[in-house]
Measured scan of single mutants.
Amino acid sequence: AVSDRLIGRKGVVMEAISPQNSALVKVDGETWRATSGTVLDVGEEVSVKAIEGVKLVVEKLE
């Protein structure tokens, strides 16, 4: 799938994300809905860990 190429890519949080709420991230110039197990604020850099349906699963870039 096209989205599989995004695993391992870096992105930027466009809307705050919490474990209860998905929000938008920008990866390679494209906007995607994403979820995370932690709270992520706007502007934080993230890494794509997986794809669940049409959502990216991201975590904060260390």
Score class of each variant (00 low, 15 high):
D28G: 07
R9F: 05
A23P: 07
S3F: 10
V57S: 03
I17V: 11
P19F: 10
K55M: 15
M14W: 03
T31F: 15
V57T: 03
S18K: 07
A34N: 05
G8N: 05
A23L: 15
V57D: 03
M14K: 04
A23I: 15
D41C: 15
V42F: 05
R33D: 14
E59P: 00
S47C: 15
E52Q: 11
K26L: 14
V2P: 15
T38K: 07
A34L: 00
G37R: 10
E45M: 13
Q20T: 13
T35I: 14
V12H: 06
I17G: 15
I7L: 08
V2L: 13
A34K: 02
V54H: 14
V25R: 00
V39K: 12
T31A: 09
A23Y: 15
R9T: 05
V46D: 01
R33W: 15
A50R: 10
V58M: 00
K26A: 09
V46N: 01
L56D: 03
I51M: 06
I17H: 13
G11K: 00
G29D: 11
A50F: 07
V12D: 03
T38P: 05
L24R: 06
E44L: 07
E45C: 15
V2W: 10
S22R: 06
L6D: 01
W32L: 10
S18A: 08
G29E: 10
D41A: 14
A1Y: 11
L40Q: 02
K60R: 12
K55G: 09
S3Y: 08
V58F: 00
K60Y: 04
T35V: 13
A16I: 15
V13N: 02
V54T: 14
A50V: 04
T38W: 07
V58D: 02
V25Y: 00
E44V: 10
M14G: 00
E30C: 13
A16E: 06
I17P: 13
K60V: 07
E30D: 08
K55E: 13
D41H: 15
V54E: 15
E62M: 11
S3H: 12
R9E: 05
E15I: 07
V25K: 02
S36L: 04
M14Y: 05
E44W: 09
E59G: 06
I51F: 05
E15N: 05
V27T: 00
T31G: 06
Q20G: 15
A34I: 04
I7F: 00
K10V: 13
L6Y: 03
K26S: 11
M14S: 05
V54D: 15
V42T: 05
Q20A: 11
I17Q: 14
T38Q: 14
E30I: 08
R9C: 11
L56F: 00
G11I: 01
T38D: 14
V46Q: 02
T35N: 06
E30W: 05
R9M: 14
L24K: 06
D28H: 04
S22A: 11
R5C: 11
E45D: 06
S3E: 08
S47P: 01
E45S: 09
A23C: 13
V39S: 12
S47Y: 15
V12R: 07
G8C: 06
D28F: 03
V12G: 01
M14H: 04
A50W: 06
V57I: 12
K60Q: 06
I7K: 04
V42G: 04
